[in-house]
Design a binder for these strands. Sequence first.
DNA 1: TAAATAAATTAGTCTTAACTAACTTTGCAT
DNA 2: ATGCAAAGTTAGTTAAGACTAATTTATTTA
Lengths: 145, 145
Amino acid sequence: MPVKNPGLKSAASSTVEDYLERILELINSKGYARVVDIAAALEISQASVTNMVQRLDAERLLKYEKYRGLVLTEAGEKLARRIAHRHRLLTEFLKLLGLDDRVICHDVEGMEHHISVPTLRAIEALTRQLRRRPALRAQLETALV
Amino acid sequence: MPVKNPGLKSAASSTVEDYLERILELINSKGYARVVDIAAALEISQASVTNMVQRLDAERLLKYEKYRGLVLTEAGEKLARRIAHRHRLLTEFLKLLGLDDRVICHDVEGMEHHISVPTLRAIEALTRQLRRRPALRAQLETALV
DNA sequence: TAAATAAATTAGTCTTAACTAACTTTGCAT
DNA sequence: ATGCAAAGTTAGTTAAGACTAATTTATTTA
């Protein structure tokens, strides 16, 4: 089934989004993202990462020199940031629903690539409202017995 | 990336879920689901449908006789119903957020396969609360300008 | 009922994105 | 400086799930 992925109107597949997300995380936390670290983070082989990294270089989302490492391009970083932001918003939303971290993590990782900008905005607004209505959140929790 | 699909703790992939969903829809609306109709509904070739239908038969989610048609098994129908139900709950939820039908349709089709049972329950509870709080819904709509 | 059309099937191909195994490069420790 | 381990790369394979083209079966209509 050719299910498109226009969530961020980038041409990025879910897979590409996952890579960018992890790469940005690594850069933020360690200052760099090596093939071996990306592979560990995504729980896939180094070979797969090498392939994808070369592809992302071809797509100008990062600059890669063989054996020497990579840096995100302007475009790549921008995209990665938006992906990370979307991830955070979804996580916060589910957190407010009282779900546990394991479930949140799993579901967000699955859904995040499929959420369009308008839906994300709506969820963001809802999250804000939910945040200031503890009584409503309490209602939800009791419903989850 | 080996992203599992434990939403309904069935072994069904997203693709299988899509097929079952459409097959049930067809059966509900026309009384039967032919290869040609499934293909049209999913916008894929008849050949692809034939393949999948044979696989679903092997997995005992439906019974299929070459050239003669198919019926869902008990297990297949049960699963299909749960998939359809999840689809409806998500659609209703997004509807209450004031999103337009195109967006809802797209996003639900993407997300539905990745929502776990606990998350679905939480969203269901939230939907109920949202339904009885028009003021809150109005707040959301104004935030979506 | 026979021809024409619609539906279904088969066989083989393509793409994406994983994998393993084998090899190369780099960097560190002696 | 060399040798070993860690990191990275290449080549070739696999699996899911699409596709087309060719063929077969079923159905409709003249």
